[in-house]
Design a protein around this nucleic acid. Structure first.
Lengths: 101, 101
DNA sequence: TAAAGTAGTTACCTTTGCGTAACTATCAAA
DNA sequence: TTTGATAGTTACGCAAAGGTAACTACTTTA
């Protein structure tokens, strides 16, 4: 478990994996699909996820350049887990109580 | 997903939940069961998990004092997810290659 | 010649996560 | 009176995570 968390224990990496659950995506698409993430964190997270064998980076030598990110087998194995996590929130989330004035 | 990660997106919180999957535990037990965690992070993580409705803190007015932590329903709903995460690592973990000298 | 599109990088800064070590409070037992 | 046990807290500091804004490189199109 400590090793799993060494790979996934950040705010954004599971969200990136979840976003790639049903499609490849380009850098710019990920940036647009994931609200509030900064390009810098996206860059470094993608790099680390690639190092850990979760995603694959495919570069097309075109103009303008194109890069696609997709889950590896190891990454795909996380899809059901990420989906359950999303579902868990839908089931148990409660609006924070409005502030009394 | 962003909300799930707002609650769980740290290195230690999922490990604490995983440790409580099959038993209540006292503060000192958690400290002993979870290798390498510091008491300080344990304290603050437990506090935040309680605020988020994941765990329940039960204080016994005894001497010496005793405090037990257990998962709430919302927390118990995470058990299968945490177990799958642990299993995922067992399946896909590879020893890092030994350094060549 | 300038703008537009893609995929980043770089510099700088703030916040959060986490660690270590020492300290507190309470009471019972030695 | 000192020790031991439980469950923390406090002070201090480092490193990682994360944010913003400006900049780069390449080529096509206007």
């Amino acid at each position: 478990m400590q090793r799993s968390m060494g790979i996934l224990g950040t705010r954004w990496k599971p969200i990136i994996i979840y976003t790639l659950r049903d499609r490849k995506a380009r850098f710019g698409q990920l940036d647009a699909l994931i609200e509030n993430i900064s390009r810098k964190v996206l860059t470094s997270s993608l790099k680390e996820l690639e190092e850990d064998g979760i995603i694959l980076r495919e570069e097309f030598k075109e103009l303008p350049p194109r890069v696609e990110y997709a889950l590896t087998e190891k990454g795909k194995a996380l899809i059901p887990i990420m989906c359950q996590l999303a579902k868990w929130n839908e089931e148990y989330y409660e609006e924070p109580a409005p502030l009394e004035l």
